Amino acid sequence: MTAPQRLTDRKRHAIVQAAITEFRACGFDVASMDKIAATAGVSKRTVYNHFPSKEELFAEILNKLWCGITAQQENTYRSDLPLREQLQQVLLAKLQMLADDNFLDLARVAIAATIHSPERARDMVARLGEREEGLALWIRAAQADGKLKAVDPGFAAQQVQGLLKAFAFWPQVSMGQAALDVDQQTQVIESALDMFLACYQLKP
């Protein structure tokens, strides 16, 4: 890698970090690209060279946040392990992500930014939906192995994640409730597992 490329990477990183601070402090609509550029120590033109719009910059932040939280998660289906054991680990990782303060703060910003802009909302939801494909792939693999019923994997993944978000995302984002403690996380996960497997698991 050449020195100019490393400098470009450093500038991009500085822009993203400055944008995170600005979005969390001001919200999406009020956040200023000028302020982001100044905080990052780059020109406004440099910011736009990396990110053509504020929407693109915010989407990059959400993607980086998600990648950082889920980097160590392993969703690969294994035919030699019980479904419940595997799915339990997947859902636990999901709850840990939902409990991350940075993720919750930026989720609030994203929701506020999309309330008055359905087009923007669809774009952000689509971008985040791409990041949830891992669970759908796991479900598809379990179906191919003859362990789960033939249901749309995307629908089933969204359904089980909705069971988690009802307790570990929406109350925190919309009403400021505290993150779930360990016992509460266990209760939510076990209940979601019971419902999901009772509905979709094929009997041997």
Score class of each variant (00 low, 15 high):
residue 83 L to D: 01
residue 85 E to Y: 07
residue 7 L to A: 15
residue 70 T to P: 07
residue 140 R to W: 03
residue 119 E to T: 15
residue 175 M to A: 15
residue 57 L to V: 04
residue 184 Q to W: 02
residue 141 A to I: 04
residue 193 L to A: 09
residue 158 Q to I: 00
residue 18 A to I: 09
residue 88 Q to P: 08
residue 13 H to F: 06
residue 53 S to E: 09
residue 162 G to C: 14
residue 183 D to V: 03
residue 12 R to W: 06
residue 186 T to V: 07
residue 152 D to C: 06
residue 92 L to P: 00
residue 134 G to D: 08
residue 1 M to L: 09
residue 21 T to N: 00
residue 52 P to N: 00
residue 191 S to L: 15
residue 142 A to M: 02
residue 85 E to T: 12
residue 79 S to Q: 15
residue 106 L to H: 07
residue 121 A to H: 13
residue 130 E to N: 11
residue 132 E to T: 12
residue 162 G to H: 14
residue 183 D to E: 13
residue 7 L to N: 15
residue 179 A to E: 05
residue 57 L to E: 02
residue 79 S to L: 07
residue 100 D to P: 00
residue 150 A to N: 08
residue 49 N to M: 05
residue 186 T to E: 07
residue 183 D to S: 12
residue 39 T to V: 14
residue 202 L to K: 11
residue 133 E to Q: 13
residue 16 V to Y: 03
residue 168 A to L: 04
residue 96 Q to W: 04
residue 6 R to A: 14
residue 127 R to A: 13
residue 162 G to A: 10
residue 94 K to L: 00
residue 184 Q to S: 08
residue 191 S to I: 14
residue 62 L to Q: 02
residue 41 G to E: 09
residue 9 D to G: 05
residue 190 E to Q: 12
residue 88 Q to Y: 09
residue 33 M to L: 14
residue 97 M to K: 01
residue 191 S to N: 15
residue 145 D to M: 11
residue 63 N to C: 10
residue 62 L to F: 03
residue 100 D to F: 02
residue 128 L to N: 00
residue 194 D to R: 11
residue 14 A to N: 00
residue 171 P to M: 06
residue 106 L to G: 02
residue 60 E to A: 03
residue 175 M to T: 14
residue 40 A to F: 05
residue 47 V to N: 06
residue 167 F to G: 04
residue 163 L to M: 15
residue 108 R to Q: 14
residue 147 K to P: 12
residue 52 P to A: 05
residue 145 D to R: 15
residue 53 S to W: 10
residue 15 I to A: 06
residue 63 N to T: 08
residue 74 E to M: 07
residue 114 T to C: 15
residue 164 L to Y: 02
residue 151 V to C: 04
residue 93 A to K: 07
residue 42 V to T: 04
residue 184 Q to K: 12
residue 26 C to G: 10
residue 67 C to H: 11
residue 86 Q to C: 06
residue 37 A to M: 03
residue 144 A to Q: 13
residue 149 K to T: 10
residue 125 V to H: 11
residue 17 Q to L: 14
residue 98 L to D: 06
residue 126 A to W: 12
residue 72 Q to M: 11
residue 27 G to H: 05
residue 18 A to M: 12
residue 69 I to R: 12
residue 78 R to C: 01
residue 174 S to F: 11
residue 34 D to N: 15
residue 49 N to L: 10
residue 132 E to F: 13
residue 151 V to F: 02
residue 37 A to Q: 00
residue 204 P to I: 07
residue 85 E to I: 08
residue 16 V to G: 02
residue 104 L to R: 13
residue 144 A to W: 01
residue 186 T to W: 01
residue 193 L to I: 08
residue 179 A to D: 03
residue 144 A to Y: 01
residue 100 D to G: 06
residue 131 R to A: 01
